[in-house]
Design a protein around this nucleic acid. Structure first.
Lengths: 103, 103
DNA sequence: AAAATATTATATTAATTTGTATATTATAAA
DNA sequence: TTTATAATATACAAATTAATATAATATTTT
């Protein structure tokens, strides 16, 4: 593989990594993922725990769903969210270890 | 600590984590960090390897410096960049392992 | 009908990226 | 010692993209 196509490949891979970084680079979503990291939560629990307003909450959860970072499970009227991405889970662990271990 | 100030603390910590995520959530910077991860590089080497134009390169390196993700060493006319953040290095490792191990 | 959640639309603001030009610094050459 | 050149940085405006807030409405389940 020549230098040019090597760099193309690197760029494509970088795109995937960057999309994930963009998903995490938002306060609402980061806080939601913190909550969800410790076990599945329904939307009303997330609203209560974070103070994020319902439409915003729903919008940000949609972003997380679209990037397959979370999965949903429906139980009656409630929708439960859980982590669904191994890489996202690992990243959240690393961040938690670094930033939250002394909290 | 009550629920409200617990959430405030979480938000402050989230801010730090998010700033780092934002730094990584850019293609130029991600590719530059990939290059620098494997050992220090001077600006002209980075320009050659990535094809990023000089002003953009310098601007993005400034972003990395401002967030203390990289450090610089000057040698004559050349400026060498290296990784300077443990957490950033760990994240890059995790991303590399996940996205690049099969490349 | 009411509760829980999602969607759509829209307005506003803010942040990021990019391009062009110019500045700085260090070395080398005349 | 001026002058030239290479390497890098900075400034700033223009263009683009993203974030935030809000309101209204839709869907699904009980």
């Amino acid at each position: 593989m020549d230098q040019t196509s090597k760099m193309e490949k690197l760029q494509q891979t970088a795109d995937q990594a960057i999309n994930l970084m963009k998903v995490l680079a938002n306060k609402d979503r980061m806080i939601l993922l913190c909550q969800i990291s410790s076990g599945e939560k329904c939307v009303s629990e997330l609203e209560e725990a974070t103070g994020i307003k319902q439409p915003t909450l729903s919008q940000q959860l949609t972003v997380l769903r679209n990037e397959a970072v979370v999965a949903t499970r429906k139980d009656g009227k409630k929708v439960y969210y859980s982590l669904a991405s191994e890489i996202a889970a690992t990243l959240m662990d690393v961040l938690h270890e670094h930033y939250c271990s002394k909290l």
